[in-house]
Measured scan of single mutants.
Amino acid sequence: AFSSEQLARLKREFNENRYLTERRRQQLSSELGLNEAQIKIWFQNKRA
């Protein structure tokens, strides 16, 4: 489960760009304390 802070950040990123570069995913992973797979799957689900 994502914290409300993490979700807000993911939604902001998604609004700016529906697709993440690998580098951006790595940055978000480290900033949010999530693993890259969690972020990747969140974006895939959000696009679906």
Rank of each mutant, 00 (worst) to 15 (best):
residue 32 L to S: 02
residue 33 G to I: 03
residue 28 L to Q: 00
residue 20 L to N: 02
residue 11 K to E: 15
residue 5 E to A: 11
residue 34 L to N: 00
residue 13 E to W: 04
residue 29 S to K: 03
residue 29 S to L: 03
residue 12 R to G: 05
residue 27 Q to I: 11
residue 26 Q to P: 01
residue 39 I to N: 01
residue 21 T to S: 12
residue 8 A to Q: 09
residue 48 A to S: 09
residue 35 N to W: 05
residue 33 G to W: 02
residue 28 L to T: 00
residue 47 R to Q: 12
residue 25 R to L: 15
residue 17 N to S: 08
residue 5 E to D: 11
residue 17 N to Y: 06
residue 22 E to A: 14
residue 47 R to V: 11
residue 9 R to S: 06
residue 2 F to D: 01
residue 18 R to W: 10
residue 23 R to D: 14
residue 6 Q to P: 00
residue 30 S to Q: 14
residue 47 R to S: 10
residue 10 L to G: 01
residue 10 L to V: 01
residue 29 S to H: 03
residue 38 Q to Y: 08
residue 44 Q to A: 12
residue 32 L to W: 03
residue 30 S to P: 01
residue 3 S to H: 04
residue 45 N to M: 13
residue 11 K to R: 14
residue 16 E to T: 08
residue 38 Q to I: 13
residue 21 T to P: 07
residue 17 N to D: 08
residue 44 Q to K: 09
residue 31 E to P: 00
residue 14 F to T: 02
residue 39 I to Y: 00
residue 5 E to H: 09
residue 10 L to F: 01
residue 43 F to W: 15
residue 38 Q to F: 10
residue 47 R to K: 07
residue 38 Q to T: 10
residue 22 E to S: 12
residue 11 K to Y: 13
residue 46 K to P: 04
residue 38 Q to C: 12
residue 21 T to A: 04
residue 35 N to G: 10
residue 38 Q to V: 14
residue 5 E to V: 08
residue 36 E to L: 05
residue 29 S to C: 07
residue 37 A to Y: 13
residue 35 N to L: 10
residue 39 I to Q: 01
residue 34 L to R: 01
residue 7 L to F: 03
residue 35 N to F: 06
residue 3 S to M: 04
residue 6 Q to A: 07
residue 4 S to I: 12
residue 42 W to K: 01
residue 16 E to H: 08
residue 23 R to G: 12
residue 13 E to C: 06
residue 46 K to C: 14
residue 11 K to L: 15
residue 33 G to S: 06
residue 21 T to K: 04
residue 5 E to Y: 08
residue 9 R to H: 06
residue 8 A to V: 07
residue 6 Q to K: 04
residue 7 L to Y: 05
residue 33 G to C: 08
residue 19 Y to C: 10
residue 27 Q to H: 07
residue 38 Q to R: 06
residue 21 T to Y: 03
residue 17 N to W: 05
residue 21 T to E: 05
residue 19 Y to R: 07
residue 39 I to H: 00
residue 31 E to M: 05
residue 46 K to A: 15
residue 43 F to G: 00
residue 2 F to H: 04
residue 2 F to W: 07
residue 45 N to T: 10
residue 26 Q to W: 06
residue 1 A to V: 12
residue 12 R to N: 09
residue 32 L to E: 00
residue 26 Q to Y: 08
residue 2 F to V: 06
residue 12 R to C: 12
residue 33 G to R: 05
residue 9 R to Q: 06
residue 14 F to A: 03
residue 8 A to L: 09
residue 31 E to D: 09
residue 16 E to R: 09
residue 17 N to F: 06
residue 39 I to E: 00
residue 11 K to A: 14
residue 33 G to V: 03
residue 37 A to T: 13
residue 21 T to R: 03
residue 10 L to S: 00
residue 32 L to G: 00
residue 29 S to D: 01
residue 30 S to E: 14
residue 11 K to V: 15
residue 15 N to E: 15
